[in-house]
């Protein structure tokens, strides 16, 4: 290193300087605000894990008496007889899964279709409004869906859709669509759930599709592919795991949806092959029987089915998040 003498100060003493020196104590102290700030925001952040911990604690504690009494049989028994203190969660678990599957079967093609339409085909001026209308579906409260379903959807199912499926299409021969058309049923619940989860699947799919690099589809188009072929061959494979993640997120929503389902599923403890017959889901069981629960064991049994729901949704969400994070490369996809 070469340091030339000419750059050295010609007047060494601070007193000669044009401006006064800095006093040492001015440079010290302070920092209290930062320490408080760190502690406070860290405290807020810790609330999130704490909340989950408390959730686990609360639900386990509440469910414990029933889980201890019935053990593994709680999952497989379909006896639900509060008067005789017998509780089995099988019909509710079955109903939860079946209604969610119906919802996904109906909602997935529509939701992914809308997402592709918005991301790839819609004229630019139409994209925002259509996306907005679909997203608004997610803003409608569950209870409003339930109200609409009770007074509009269920009568329509009873008078038109169910007879049409059973008699006109002759699907009544299969066990799935047989039996009397009450209206409130697994199928009605699945249908209202389909409408409710559609915006979630659609918005995740849309974001994932929009995240696919432009070059990906342009390369396919340049090779002579039609637009659909470009989407099918170049875009969808790229977005696949993200879309699956979106579908599983939708599944998570469907599994835990409470009010609308409670209002249309018919609330009966029964496993029936027919989708026309009433049933129960975990969430609707809890919501429906909570206020009239007879005794501690009944309450605890309700909490135990809640516990099962909690565990299922935890797993489903974990998988979905993982898939979406992978595609988005950590980019946030709204859901």
């Amino acid at each position: 290193m070469t340091v030339n003498a000419e750059t050295r100060s010609d007047a060494g003493a601070p007193g000669d300087a044009a401006s006064p020196g800095i006093e040492g104590q001015h440079l010290q102290g302070g920092g209290l605000a930062d320490r408080v700030y760190d502690v406070v925001i860290k405290g807020f952040a810790l609330c999130v894990p704490l909340l989950l911990l408390l959730l686990v604690l609360a639900i386990t504690e509440a469910a414990w008496p029933a889980l201890r009494q019935f053990g593994f049989g709680f999952l497989t028994s379909s006896d639900w007889d509060p008067n005789n203190q017998k509780f089995g969660a099988a019909p509710a678990i079955y109903g939860t899964i079946v209604s969610s599957i119906i919802a996904l079967v109906i909602a997935t093609p529509l939701a992914v279709g809308v997402a592709i339409y918005i991301a790839e085909f819609a004229p630019l001026w139409l994209r925002r409004p259509v996306a907005f209308l679909i997203d608004l579906l997610a803003a409608i409260p569950s209870v409003v869906y339930g109200l609409w379903a009770i007074f509009v959807l269920v009568p329509l199912m009873r008078t038109a859709v169910m007879p049409f499926l059973r008699d006109t299409l002759h699907l009544g021969a299969t066990p799935l669509f047989s039996g009397p058309a009450y209206g409130p049923s697994m199928l009605s619940a699945g249908l209202i759930l389909a409408i409710m989860v559609l915006p979630y699947i659609s918005s995740v799919s849309r974001e994932v599709l929009l995240a696919v690099p432009r070059s990906q589809r342009e390369a396919a188009l340049a090779l002579g592919a039609t637009r659909w072929e470009a989407i099918q061959g170049a875009v969808l494979p790229f977005a696949k795991s993200g879309i699956i993640g979106g579908i599983i997120l939708g599944l998570g929503r469907a599994l835990g949806e409470t009010m609308a389902v409670t209002m249309v599923i018919g609330n009966r403890h029964e496993i029936s092959a027919s989708l026309f017959s009433p049933g129960y889901t975990i969430a609707s069981l809890i919501a429906n029987e909570f206020s009239e629960a007879s005794g501690d064991l009944h309450l605890s049994a309700l909490m135990a089915v809640g516990f099962i729901l909690f565990v299922i949704t935890l797993i489903v969400n974990g998988i979905a998040r993982w898939l979406v994070w992978q595609t988005g490369g950590g980019r946030r996809v709204r859901a």
Binding site: P14, G21, I22, G24, H26, L27, Q28, G29, G30, G31
Partner: peptide, 20 residues
């Protein structure tokens, strides 16, 4: 050393340094 005070000193507040 800023005017002879070590800015990496133990008690020095970096925010105060930056004001100068």
């Amino acid at each position: 050393l800023l005017d002879g005070h070590d800015i990496f000193g133990a008690k020095v507040n970096p925010a105060a340094i930056r004001k100068h």
